[in-house]
Design a protein around this nucleic acid. Sequence first.
DNA 1: CAGAATGAAAT
DNA 2: ATTTCATTCTG
Length: 242
Amino acid sequence: MNHQAATLPSGNFGPQDPPSMEAIATSAWVLLESQITPFTEVMAIPGDIYRAIDAGGKKFIARNFMSYIGKNVLYCRDGTGNDRYFLGNPRTFLRGGGTIVSVEGTEPFWMIRSNTTIIEAAAAHLGVAVPAREKKIPRPPNAYILYRKERHNIVRDAHPGITNNEISQVLGAAWNAESREVRQQYKEKSDKIKKALYEQHPDYQYRPRKPSEKKRRGRRTASTDEEIEHDSDELAKPSFAD
DNA sequence: CAGAATGAAAT
DNA sequence: ATTTCATTCTG
């Protein structure tokens, strides 16, 4: 990191002496990237750096970060008085206690609960690859899943009162006993389905939830009383001091 | 939701 | 190496 924040040209510099906007954005990204952890959902960008980056650079950074968190992102100005901006998924901002207000035809604004003032929002739509409301695309079924799906009812009818778990055991054994040819056929089927999915959703990407916060929406489980999920909010959520 | 089976894909 | 989730449905 040879470029420090202070080194970055702040504000305006003539078009005659452009220190390469690309270089600025790139070094800014390098700097920002260092603050990314597996739990990062929101990135804090120092005001001077933010202002030194042009629209293209912001887009560039936004894209990079998007690929990190796999979510749509939005720039927001910090409303707590700190000279910095946040980049992250709108939902995360909401979770932090803020409110994003979007007036028709206008760019979205971000408001902080404790603040009556509307904070100006920066660059909104990154106008790309963000299908806005991309519904959750189910991951494609693998060969065995297809196999099981097919015979589920069959086995079910053949064994009154059989439980699903048992069906899984039965079909699991059947699957392993199946010839390579047969399994290969299902494999091809699954590949075909997968391929179709990728064609239909070019930007589809499997994104498993963070290990251990599985099928649990909103709540925290302390089954064994182990360490409670160290909230990814720690870093994710901009701290709003009242 | 857990769970049971397998496998793909992500971390 | 480990974890999620895709399929299905009862408990």
